[in-house]
Design a protein around this nucleic acid. Structure first.
Length: 575
RNA sequence: UGGGGAUUGGUGUAAUCGGUAGCACGACGGAUUCUGAUUCCGUUAGUCGGGGUUCAAGUCCCUGAUCCCCAGCCA
């Protein structure tokens, strides 16, 4: 009985490396972490990292569950804020990654880092340097020329120990001294030319307050934090590949000094996510917010998790997206369509359907198709519509068909080509869930603008009848009883696929899409009056819309368009 | 020859020891449909270039090209 596994989904290079580590006995389990710096909000690129790290922890979970840490890389108090810490935790949780009780901060380890640095000094691996930042830069050499050693490189252990202690004590001004690792000023890898381990910053830290005026640099803090937490695979983006020798160098020294156990973390790099029509750098996102090109970090046009959430993206769709794009070391730019497809997929399954008219045109029912008069009451009939055509279990709701209706301006054409299946003079369409309307008269205003259509209604067609089929079905909303609401239509924040590719002398801001937001007052079917903040609906034939949690009021919802429906007619019409 | 990494259809990716270049998205065509949605079917198109080894090369060897990262007391 061979239970040979059928080749399932192929495994990406990180999974393969972990498999090899496990097989070789180099590690006994897998423990990952997500290490954000709290100096900005998380964006879709971070989501890729979170999904990767948490996904691996889940995939390789032992009986005690996934081992996944959230660790704030708070080593630079000058740029980090509690506001970001709170938002990051909220976003990570929302995405579905669970760090359980394993919430850590690089600052939790400041004392340990300090003690280890003292040991490195004692072992002759680090020294206090009095060079200014400028001098360090000048003596580092270039990419093709070796640097020259600092004149302080030969200080005695005793002097280094004394100076380092006094640095901690606050005796020296910012920038006056640094602690540097003594590695190799002629290393081809510039990161190994005696990198700074500590710099003096008399700045209070959002967690440790004024306890320290000495802060560890990233390279000195990161790998050691990984090691302390028992991280087995430290996964980061490609730009840190050049730092791996330094990551290993610190770990090697600490292991040699018996300060670390035999099992140690391993750094693996993958290509960060790039998306068309947007920018991903924290600096640029900050600039968009500060210069008010967007309404805030949670502006639905932003690629931030907060923006995406407010736009109506679901955590499930973002996870599916991250799964679909894969993990490699190739720099690539994913088409925004993939992200949009991912929400469409999810919302198509889950979002209840409703009717909404974005750009209203009045349609008046003047009588029945057989010439008889409509009932005396305004309501011609009450229509029952399914909330989801593929999921009848989601129930239905009623929409009154009245004498006066709103339909979409786009759904009427006076001189229509023959592929146009909607309303035209003398033509018939199906009013969704109601029956057929036949256009008998087109009313225009003084400027020739179509302002009203007069139609007759065919009640025999409420159920489908043979011989009375019509190709087009349009949505509608009763004038009496409809709800008016603000609807925001969002488009790409940037008008070009690669916003960073700006003309000479211009920045990425030059490529901002001036029409990325359009506000409309739409007419909605009555049921939508009670739509609640945070709900998603499909407005049939238009797109998916999310009830804005901030601007909506009870009984007065406000909708953000998450994404349009696929529109094959739109493509035809463009030609 | 500064160091490090990458290169497979339009896009994103897969191919275990060298053995039928596969999947998805898109595009295009068609079927179904009370959403021009969804769903379903089909078509399309690829190993960066040049040599070499081999019965057989995306994979191994040689050589060239292109792209990305690195000279913060940022991460």
């Amino acid at each position: 009985m061979s239970t040979e596994e059928t080749p399932t989904a192929s495994r990406h290079f990180i999974q393969q490396q972990i498999d090899a580590d496990l097989a070789a006995g180099r590690v006994k389990h897998v423990h990952t972490r997500f290490p954000p710096e709290p100096n900005g909000y998380l964006h879709i690129g971070h989501a890729k990292s979170i999904c990767l790290n948490f996904g691996l922890a889940k995939e390789y979970a032992g009986p005690e569950g996934p081992r996944f840490n959230l660790r704030f890389d708070d080593t630079n108090p000058a740029r980090e804020e509690q506001e970001y810490v709170d938002a990051i935790m909220d976003d990570v949780r929302w995405l579905g990654a669970d760090w359980e009780s394993r919430l850590y901060h690089a600052s939790d380890y400041f004392e340990t880092h300090y003690g280890w640095a003292v040991e490195l000094i004692k072992a002759g691996h680090a020294y206090v340097c009095d060079q200014t930042a400028e001098q360090v830069r000048e003596t580092r050499g270039t990419l093709t020329e070796a640097g020259t050693p600092s004149p302080y490189r030969g200080r005695s252990v005793e002097e280094n120990l004394d100076l380092f202690k006094r640095m901690r004590g606050g005796e020296f001004a910012d920038g006056a001294k640094t602690l540097r690792a003594k590695i190799d000023m002629s290393a081809a890898n510039v990161n190994l030319r005696d990198p700074v381990m500590y710099r003096i910053k008399h700045t209070s830290h959002q967690r440790t307050g004024d306890a320290w005026c000495l802060y560890p640099a990233y390279d000195w803090a990161h790998g050691q934090g990984d090691a302390m937490e028992g991280i087995t695979h430290s996964i980061c983006t490609l730009e840190f590949e050049n730092h791996r020798p330094l990551y290993d160098w610190y770990l090697d020294r600490l292991q040699a000094l018996k300060l670390l156990p035999g099992e140690r973390p391993r750094q693996i790099e993958f290509a960060r996510l790039n998306l068309t029509y947007t920018v991903m750098s924290k600096r640029k996102l900050l600039q968009l917010v500060q210069e008010k090109h967007v309404a805030g970090w949670d502006d639905p046009r932003m690629p931030t998790l907060r923006g995406l959430r407010r736009r109506g993206y679901t955590a499930e769709s973002i996870r599916a997206f991250c799964e679909r794009i894969g993990v490699t070391k190739q720099n690539s730019t994913i088409d925004m369509l993939w992200l949009e497809d991912a929400v469409r997929d999810h919302l198509n399954e889950t979002a209840p359907r409703r009717m909404a008219v974005l750009r209203p045109l009045k349609l008046v029912l003047t009588g029945y198709a057989d010439g008889s008069a409509l009932p005396p009451s305004d309501s011609v009939k009450v229509c029952k519509l399914d909330n989801h055509p593929q999921h009848p279990e989601l129930g239905s709701r009623s929409v009154p068909l009245t004498r006066e209706l709103w339909i979409e301006q786009d759904d009427f054409m006076e001189d229509a080509p023959k592929q146009f299946f909607r309303l035209k003079p003398g033509g018939a369409v199906r009013l969704r869930g109601a029956g057929m309307a036949i256009c008998q008269e087109v009313i225009k205003d003084a400027t020739g603008e179509v302002v009203e259509l007069r139609c007759v209604f065919d009640p025999d067609t409420t159920a489908l009848v043979e011989g009375k089929k019509v190709k087009g079905t349009i949505h509608w909303v009763p004038v009496e009883g409809s709800v008016e609401a603000e609807v925001r239509l969002y488009d790409h924040l940037f008008g070009v696929e690669e916003p960073d590719r700006a003309p000479e002398g211009e920045t990425f801001l030059h490529n901002l899409n001036k029409h990325s937001l359009e506000r409309l007052t739409a007419k909605l079917e009555p049921d939508l009056a009670t739509a609640c903040a945070g709900e998603s609906y499909q407005f049939e034939r238009i797109g998916y819309f999310f009830v804005d949690p901030i601007d909506s009021r009870a009984g007065a919802p406000c909708f953000n368009r998450t994404v349009t429906l696929r529109d094959t007619w739109g493509k035809v019409a463009d030609k």
